Amino acid sequence: METKKDTFSDFRQKYQRYLKLEKGYSPNTLDAYMRDLQKLLVFLKGEDISVVDAKLEDIERFAGAVRDLGIGARSLARILSGVRQFYNYLVLDGYLENDPTELLESPKQPQHLPEVLSTEEVDMLEKAIDLSKWEGHRNKAIIEVLFSCGLRVSELTNLKLSNLYLEEQFVRVMGKGSKERLVPISPRAIEELGYWFMDRNVMKIKPGEEDYVFLNRRGAHLTRTMILIMIKNYAKDAGILKTISPHTLRHSFATALLEGGADLRAIQAMLGHESIGTTEIYTHIDTTTLRQEILEHHPRNIRYNS
Score class of each variant (00 low, 15 high):
Gly194His: 04
Ala63Phe: 04
Gly70Lys: 10
Arg17Glu: 07
Arg17Gly: 01
Glu47Tyr: 01
Thr243Met: 13
His284Tyr: 10
Met270Thr: 04
Tyr87Gln: 11
Glu115Pro: 09
Gln169Tyr: 03
Lys55Gly: 08
Val171Gly: 04
Gly272Val: 05
Gln16Thr: 11
Asp48Trp: 01
Asp53Val: 00
Leu166Trp: 01
Thr288Ala: 14
Phe8Asp: 06
Val213Tyr: 02
Ser106Ala: 11
Thr287Tyr: 11
Phe43Ile: 02
Ala32Glu: 06
Arg35Asn: 12
Arg224Val: 12
Thr289Phe: 13
Lys236Thr: 07
Asn98Ile: 12
Tyr89His: 12
Gln85Pro: 06
Glu60Val: 14
Lys140Asp: 00
Asp6Lys: 14
Leu264Phe: 04
Asp199Lys: 15
Leu271Phe: 09
Ala54Met: 10
Phe86Trp: 08
Arg74Gly: 02
Leu90Ala: 09
Asn88Tyr: 05
Glu135Trp: 10
Tyr165Cys: 13
Leu222Thr: 01
Arg188Asn: 05
Glu2Ala: 09
Asn163Tyr: 09
Ala238Trp: 03
Leu37Ser: 02
Val66His: 02
Gly177Arg: 13
Ala235Asp: 05
Gly24Trp: 14
Glu144Thr: 03
Ala256Val: 05
Leu103Phe: 12
Asp123Cys: 04
Lys5Glu: 07
Val116Ser: 07
Pro100Trp: 00
Arg224Lys: 11
Lys236Asn: 06
Arg74Ile: 11
Ile49Ser: 04
Leu151Asn: 02
Pro110Trp: 13
Pro100Lys: 11
Ile79Phe: 05
Ala235Gln: 07
Val91Asn: 07
Phe11Trp: 12
Tyr282Ser: 11
Gly177Asp: 01
Thr157Met: 11
Asn301Met: 15
Pro114Leu: 12
Leu161Ser: 03
Arg138Gln: 05
Phe253Trp: 09
Glu168Lys: 15
Phe11Leu: 15
Arg250Ser: 03
Ser26His: 03
Leu104Trp: 04
Leu241Glu: 10
Ser162Ala: 09
Asp6Trp: 10
Val213Gly: 06
Lys176Trp: 05
Gly261Trp: 03
Ala141Met: 13
Asp123Ser: 11
Ile185Met: 10
Gln268Lys: 15
Thr101Cys: 13
Tyr165Pro: 05
Gly150Phe: 14
Ala254Trp: 10
Leu41Trp: 00
Ile129Ala: 08
Gln13Phe: 02
Leu146Thr: 01
Ala189Glu: 00
Leu215Glu: 03
Lys232Cys: 07
Thr283Trp: 12
Pro187Phe: 00
Met203Ser: 06
Asp6Arg: 14
